[in-house]
Each structure stands twice: as C-alpha cells, then as structure tokens.
Design a protein around this nucleic acid. Sequence first.
DNA 1: TTACATATGTAATATTATAACATTTAATTA
DNA 2: TAATTAAATGTTATAATATTACATATGTAA
Lengths: 138, 138
Amino acid sequence: MKNKQLTNKKEILTKNQEIVLKLLEKSNEPLKAYSILFNLSEQGVKAPLQVYRALDRLIEIGKVHKIESKNAFVACINSNCTANSNAAFTICEDCDAVSEIHDNKEILKNLNYLANREKSKLNKYNLELYITCKNCLK
Amino acid sequence: MKNKQLTNKKEILTKNQEIVLKLLEKSNEPLKAYSILFNLSEQGVKAPLQVYRALDRLIEIGKVHKIESKNAFVACINSNCTANSNAAFTICEDCDAVSEIHDNKEILKNLNYLANREKSKLNKYNLELYITCKNCLK
DNA sequence: TTACATATGTAATATTATAACATTTAATTA
DNA sequence: TAATTAAATGTTATAATATTACATATGTAA
C-alpha cells in the first residue's frame, strides 16, 4: 500500500510538472527557470514558484537534472534513472552544447571507492565535464 | 618575458584578492559571496563587485574553487593547483562539511577516457560528491 | 610624459530562488 | 456520500546571488 502510493507519486505527474517536463524534453539545450516560465506563460504558468516547484519534484523523482554551474535544467535521458540520481554531463566551452553521460558505471565505481576510502557513504554525485566538443575541435 | 609576467600575475595578488583569499583560508567551511562581503566590510570591502571580482581572479589562477551546488567558495588546499584547475569535493548531506579531494589522478584518468571516447577534449571538471560523512554515519 | 592596460569604486539593476499565506484539488476514510 | 486530511496551486512580496555600466585611479610600457 505504502509502496503503491510511492510508485504513483513517481509516475503520475501533476499538470505543471507535466508541461515543464514536456518543454524540457523537446528542448535540445538546458533551460533556465525563468526561460521555462516565459515559455509556458500561455499555458497558465505565471509565477516562478510554479516552475521551481515542478522542477523540484521532477528532480526528486529523477526525471530532471540541474546543471549546477549554469543554473539550468535538462530532462534526464536515462529512462531508468532512479530518484535523486547521479548526474554526469559534458559541457562544451565553445558552443555550450550539453550532453548527459549515461554509461557511467566506471565513474560510479571510482567515486564509491573515493568515498569509502574516507569511511563515508556516497549518496549521489554531480559531475560536470567542461570540454571542447568534437565539432568545435575541428 | 611574457612568461615572467604571467607568473607575476598568478602570484602577486591585489589588496582585495589578498583579503578575500585570507578570509577563505582561515574559514573551515565554504563561504558565500555576501557572507564574505559582510565579513570584510571593516576592511573596506563595501560592494558585491569587489568580492566577485576578487573571487573571479582567484578562481582563474586556481587559488579558489566554487562549490557550484552551494554558490559558495573555498580556498584550494592543493598548493600545486594549476590555473582553472579541476575541482573535486565531498559534501556531507547531514552536517554540510565540505572537503576537497586531492588525490584524484584516478578520477582524471577516467574522465579523460570518457571525453576522448566522444572525441572531445577535457578542459576541466567540477565534481561534487554528496555523502554521509564518517562522523554522521555513527 | 603620454599612452595604455589593469584595477577600483559606486550605483543601479538583472537574475535566480524562496517565504508566507490563501485557495483549490485530490485522496482517504468514517 | 460527506467529512477529513493531505497535496498541489496561485499569488504577492521579498530574499539571495550576480552583473552592467560608467567614472576614477593606479601601475606599466613606449
């Protein structure tokens, strides 16, 4: 019972959560909160809080990540991302393109090792790789 | 000649840079920009810009790191940190303690591998490990 | 000295995010 | 079903973080 409710909580999105997520999913770049706000003003999203509340929830359930160094948000591309999940991104310093790294088992192993070495427990991580991307290297 | 100047630029700090760095060095936790501002008001630092400009420069030369997820700043503990250097931290989710990871050759190797795999070049990285620390685990 | 780059000071303002509280909607259960 | 509670929403105001723009000063090189 408790479990069922929890599952629902994760899967059933409210109206605001739904439209914020849809917008992020169709965007090909990270969006800032106020840019989301302006984009969605015609759909009834009128105040920052509506956006921030939706984002908080979406991040909590693992559907969205925040790119901390940019104060911007992206939809998670990893369908099996778990709640409060780990996030790893590359960010091109030239063209600003951001992509999520999905094959990060090796990273996780290393980071767990680092945490364990200090006798602490790794809960989650945020990794931002500033790169020059393939296209910009040419 | 060019080199010498560059070296000087890295080593000779201006008054504001100096006092901001001193403050960060004696703090045992990351400080926020406005907290630095209030702390230094008696030393003639009166406007946010003075703090932000000093921080920018200190970050540029590798003396300070920004904890992106906290909008807070710490002095680099790694004496041989190079300009625009890589940063890796653990952040305890219970007690907020932050420490810099310094032995991160292994991480760097992995991250370089990830970047190279996409045919892109790694310039720097920001890694924030959210942990429960040794003390808080008890 | 003149010219130039770098650093500073200051005021104003832009951007990002949250607090507080009233209202509505949804879920639970008596 | 109606009553009760929890969760989500709407709205206003404001806090916290960061930058623009411009005037002035200081240091460095020609």
